[in-house]
């Protein structure tokens, strides 16, 4: 079923929308969740959460690209689940030292620190916009979808060596761009 029809079903509050989304994007959701979650049960729960969020958000949201919309939600839910799992495993009093340090960046920082992330996001988008499509897609697959080099190679047809070179170049140039914009990393 086409995305437009599925969205119409959401707007009509027809449960068929959930089933059609599951049929069309269920595998994609599980695939993306698998990049962040090791346990099958967690991935399935993540997909269920995604379907629920879709039902709650459409309407009023009317995604221009349903696939990207679904991918964004499932990725976000997977990351949340992964973080929650880590918190549980760490226990009450034990903190990951690295995250404790990173959280110190938040404590006591004024609101401008949060805007760094938003501003950095704009710079990243601006930078990505200037990249050729293949490079941009590889970047997204690696850093947004958390795909392995091997999987990216299988998806795009580029050799693994080529992908590594592309990622290294984009990282270098992005770091330089962020530095020029006054965003410390």
């Amino acid at each position: 079923m086409k995305d437009e029809k599925i969205i119409e079903l959401f707007f009509a509050r027809d449960e068929e929308a959930i089933r059609e989304t599951q049929n069309k994007y269920g595998n994609l959701c599980l695939y993306i969740a698998a990049n962040f979650l090791a346990l099958r049960e967690d991935r399935e729960e993540c997909v269920n959460d995604t379907l629920l969020e879709l039902w709650q958000s459409i309407p009023p949201e009317k995604p221009i690209d349903l696939r990207a919309y679904v991918a964004t939600i499932v990725r976000s839910r997977a990351i949340d689940k992964s973080r929650a799992n880590n918190a549980w495993k760490r226990g009450g009093n034990v903190q990951i030292v690295g995250e404790e340090f990173l959280s110190m960046l938040d404590d006591g920082c004024d609101l401008a620190e949060d805007y760094e992330s938003v501003r950095a996001g704009r710079v990243i988008n601006d930078y990505l916009g200037a990249l050729p499509k293949p490079e941009r897609a590889v970047f997204i697959m690696r850093y947004w979808l958390d795909e392995s080099i091997t999987n990216i190679s299988a998806r795009t047809g580029f050799s693994e060596g080529r992908i590594k070179m592309m990622l290294m170049r984009t990282r270098k140039k992005l770091e330089e761009r962020l530095r020029l914009e006054g965003i410390t990393v």
Binding site: I64, D65, R67, A68, Y69, A71, T72, S117, V118, G121, R122, I124, N125, L128, G129, R136, A137, I140, W144
Partner: peptide
């Protein structure tokens, strides 16, 4: 915050 167009 990556643009959804690039994700798509």
């Amino acid at each position: 915050h990556i643009d959804s167009r690039y994700i798509s």
